[in-house]
Design a protein around this nucleic acid. Sequence first.
DNA 1: ATCAACCCTCACACCGGTATGAAGGTCAAG
DNA 2: CTTGACCTTCATACCGGTGTGAGGGTTGAT
Lengths: 148, 148
Amino acid sequence: MLIGELSRRTGVRAHQLRYYETQGLLKPGRATSGYREYTTDAVLTVAQIRKLLEAGLSTEQIRFLQPCVTGAAADLEPCPESLSTLRTRLEEMDERIDTLVRSRRALHDYIDVTERRASAVAARGGLCPAEVVLEPGVAELVDGPGLA
Amino acid sequence: MLIGELSRRTGVRAHQLRYYETQGLLKPGRATSGYREYTTDAVLTVAQIRKLLEAGLSTEQIRFLQPCVTGAAADLEPCPESLSTLRTRLEEMDERIDTLVRSRRALHDYIDVTERRASAVAARGGLCPAEVVLEPGVAELVDGPGLA
DNA sequence: ATCAACCCTCACACCGGTATGAAGGTCAAG
DNA sequence: CTTGACCTTCATACCGGTGTGAGGGTTGAT
């Protein structure tokens, strides 16, 4: 398909798709006319790129991740130094996730407390929840002891 | 303390600290000279800001998060509309974390496979590496070790 | 009084991802 | 053959977070 259709299918503007190409994230073929020609796989690839970008990764990091994500590059040279680079990458992602999870919990707890006090307006007193205790229940998604 | 000392203690350049102030993340007092005066709390606050920035959040999102993180603003008006905004924020963070966790796992699996085939050429392993990272599926828990 | 070290504000520029527009080539339909 | 939708490249500019420097005030020590 041409770039316009890919744009339509993914909701991503054509100039963005061209940009992703310059960053090595997309590699469309070319017609004799010079037009870019994408396979249907590109739709998924673009969706992936968008998600990762929205999650705060750079195009460079995404390019790094792509081989693993697609599983397409599992038959590369097991180059050991690149392996250690990948491990460093992994640690960085862990830290990133950890920070996000902590903040997410803080936000969740805050909502919880505010909610509680909103629904209990009748209650009087200066409850000072400087230290919000984790309570069981309301375990959506990331909550709970998990993530270890 | 003055901005120079805070900069020294946090490893964050003074100009960045001033920028964070313009974004409403820091609110130092002012001496008669016009110099900014920070309390020791600011050291922690700055560390917090840095972590969140590095995790890919914007200053605006961080400003949103700050009251919850510090626990200092638990005695605000339980304004319900702000509450729903917060819930939306929470969902956004969930999505973000989810995407990151998926990618992290893909990377982890990839490393694992590469490692295996590097250290055990003799072993016959027909295991195929990670599949897709995307898929509009439900959230799952993150795997194994690495996440505090 | 002067000097160094520190602070102030303001302006300008970089990078990454995005958004526009200009100037022009390709192609199918009328 | 022309029209219009679509494509090409190139240039320009925005925003957010960062970096740098100019021009100038404050402070403390010599």
